[in-house]
Amino acid sequence: MAISGLVVTLSEDPAGAAALTVLNSEPRLTLGERFGRRVAVVAETPSARDDRELFDELRAMPGITQVDVTYVHLDTEPAVSELSQQGPLVEEPRAHR
């Protein structure tokens, strides 16, 4: 489970308003207060990987000019088990060669 606090900055043009509509309907997001073009958002996803993918989706969305992360809470156990499922991140530790 990954929970992130984000600040999403919307563009001034109509794409910004459209983006806001999309954000409001996105089940992984909870929208908070708006401060001008900036809106506080909480993202909740099943895993750190999904959290990262959502972050990339938001950054690429028309009408969103910037996404800043202010808080991350990760259950680290799933990240470690994700690693072991796909094999070691690096080759065997060099110290043992």
Binding site: M1, I3, S4, G5, L6, V7, T30, G32, E33, R34, F35, R38, V39, A40, V41, V42, E44, D68, T70, Y71, H73
Partner: peptide, 19 residues
């Protein structure tokens, strides 16, 4: 705990967004 963490995340984001 989930609710607490979400609230923490929102507080952090809102504080930053408000500048």
């Amino acid at each position: 705990r989930r609710t607490f963490v979400k609230a923490s995340a929102m507080a952090a984001a809102a504080a930053a967004a408000s500048g």
